[in-house]
């Protein structure tokens, strides 16, 4: 019995030392990871609607979106939000910018883990650029009667991006007062 206690103790010491080291490394890397993620989001936002002041809001449906205003005239320039939906093998997150008429200004895929060579091509400009200027009614993939040209061999990924965009736009549009003065 004593022998087994000793074995358990040795194993426990190893686990404790390993956990201690990991905890230390975590305190070093966690802020870097968080910072990098926040920075990437801010950069994506500013690329979509340049020279604007952003204000964080939450819709009734629980979607976090940002109201973009001209810093001088206070005019509403548009909205940005992150649309997310399940694609073929991962959740695809898309940073979306729309103008005050809810027309798409641009999209950028910020996170995806789709099949390389097929769905993963959704990050390419040839796919993302086509969304610019689209209205809510147009954002359906071609197979569903819309104007979004699907990636070849990756209809599911394309459809998930189009659907998440549409849902997000409807969500922000349906806010009683998206500009949010009163």
């Amino acid at each position: 019995m004593k022998y087994y206690l000793k074995l358990g103790l040795i194993l426990f010491i190893f686990c404790a030392v390993a956990s201690g080291i990991l905890a230390y490394i975590n305190t070093l890397t966690a802020p870097v990871i968080a910072e990098r993620k926040a920075l990437a989001e801010i950069q994506a936002r500013e690329a979509l609607i340049p020279n604007a002041e952003f204000e964080e809001k939450e819709s009734d449906q629980g979607l976090t979106y940002y109201l973009a205003k001209d810093p001088e005239t206070d005019e509403i320039l548009g909205y940005t939000f992150i649309a997310a939906d399940l694609g073929y093998s991962s959740t695809v997150q898309t940073m979306v910018g729309v103008d005050s008429e809810f027309k798409v200004l641009g999209v950028q895929i910020i996170d995806q883990g789709e099949t390389p060579g097929l769905g993963a091509n959704c990050t390419l400009p040839i796919f993302t650029n086509q969304f610019s200027g689209m209205t809510l009614e147009e954002i359906y993939v071609d197979k569903d009667g819309g104007v979004v040209v699907s990636l070849s061999g990756a209809t599911i990924t394309s459809r998930c991006i189009a659907n998440s965009l549409r849902e997000g736009i409807i969500d922000v549009k349906d806010e009683p007062n998206p500009g949010g003065e009163q």
Partner: peptide, 29 residues
């Protein structure tokens, strides 16, 4: 200093610790 009876779990702990380090450092940089 590792008793041979628990050597495999000890090795796994050592390996898992380094893997987690690689994981965290890679995610950051």
């Amino acid at each position: 200093i590792t008793p041979s009876k628990i050597r495999i779990p000890v090795y796994i702990v050592v390996i898992a610790a380094f893997v987690s380090i690689v994981d965290m450092v890679m995610a950051a940089y």
